[in-house]
Write a protein that binds this DNA or RNA. Structure first.
Lengths: 203, 203
DNA sequence: CTTGTTCCATAACGGTCGGTATATAATGTG
DNA sequence: CACATTATATACCGACCGTTATGGAACAAG
């Protein structure tokens, strides 16, 4: 109970890197969604066999939750950075441009992993959907608070509804990921964001 | 080749209504997406057996395309009606409020059937995705033309990009369907639309 | 009646799904 | 060395997938 840091490995050491395997799994889930990613897809991409996967991660669902953790930490950190922008307008622009980088880039799969995995609702994937919805709600709440602060600071006109504005921004975000997944070019997405910013309320 | 209208049924008459069965299939695809809807789900909802389904509709993919036809005709006709609104603002508002009615109602499944079926991309469902994307692009083009006309009529400020504005409106639309599918209440969706309309460019 | 045609019902096809039992290989400990 | 422990590899499980073959039931035409 005191020190389990070193963990003193006793048996045969594993021949793969757990973090690297998880990153590969993330890529598969991102490209195919939870239901669309088969265990064969996952094990092949991770370079391990099924028993190794089950021993290291539990099962497919647990693997997904861990991949989603990694996804949030690595790919959605721009959302936290956005909140620290000085003005509400810059928060929104940071959010939207960040979405283009992450969901419309060329290295990673197009679209949003959470959205892809939560929209297609196989009956057994309800917990997946619930997890995504819960995470989305919590980050949305931070955005509402940020916009309410902006209103207090005179950064947003008083007649604008902070919660409504957050929903709008999230809708734009979701639209960006959807259109990116449908094959929109980066130029088209930037055009979307440019136009969105011309509509953004001025103080 | 002249008259095949009556079709002179020769063998045993079918015991179910094709249109009604298609409507039931639409409901299943809408709720579960293309991949998520199994043949068993479909046949049970349609009240027919698998051979009957295959005889009447071909296969699962053909059934989906026909269901998507019906979906567009019955549920997405508000999109065509929106184009006939007198001002660009009213076009947009008609579009967004119509989306709430269709995708956030209580009688039908929440969310957009096309989006649900096209985002989760099993390898064999590529033609499904292509169909949805193609239909979306064609209806989006009509909207661009409508907004360009609005610009010519002075209905939208000259500095606003019609294509960008269309992408924004579509993003809002997609966001509405996503949030509806995630459990947003009708009040929340209306708040989203209300705020969107306060941002809409004034002439 | 028979014949031809079309539909319905059952049952099965090969294939894939997520998950696992079994046996073996590789390590630390005695 | 033996032994416990852990990881790997193979092969397999039952369940479900989309699809279809088979056999009988219901109709029109001859």
């Amino acid at each position: 109970m005191e020190q389990d840091v070193i963990a003193a490995p006793k048996g045969r050491p594993r021949e793969f890197c757990v973090d690297q395997a998880l990153a590969s799994a993330l890529h598969v889930f991102w490209a195919k969604g939870y239901d669309g990613a088969s265990m064969t897809d996952l094990t092949e991409a991770m370079g391990i066999t099924k028993p190794s996967l089950y021993a290291a991660f539990g099962n497919k669902e647990a693997l997904f939750h861990k991949a989603l953790d990694l996804y949030e930490q690595e790919k959605l950190e721009y959302g936290r950075a956005a909140l620290e922008q000085p003005t509400a307008r810059k928060v929104a622009e940071f959010y939207l441009r960040g979405a283009i980088d992450v969901h419309g880039g060329t290295d990673d799969p197009k679209g949003c992993m959470g959205l892809i995995s939560s929209l297609a609702c196989s009956p057994e994937a309800e917990s997946i959907k619930a997890d995504v919805v819960r995470r989305r709600a919590s980050s949305q709440r931070l955005l509402v608070e940020r916009f309410e602060r902006a209103k207090a600071e005179g950064d947003i006109p008083a007649h604008v509804d902070a919660e409504g504005l957050t929903s709008v921004l999230y809708a734009l975000l979701q639209g960006i990921t959807v259109q990116a997944g449908a094959g929109a070019t980066r130029a088209e997405l930037e055009r979307l964001v440019d136009t969105s910013m011309t509509l953004w309320p001025s103080a």
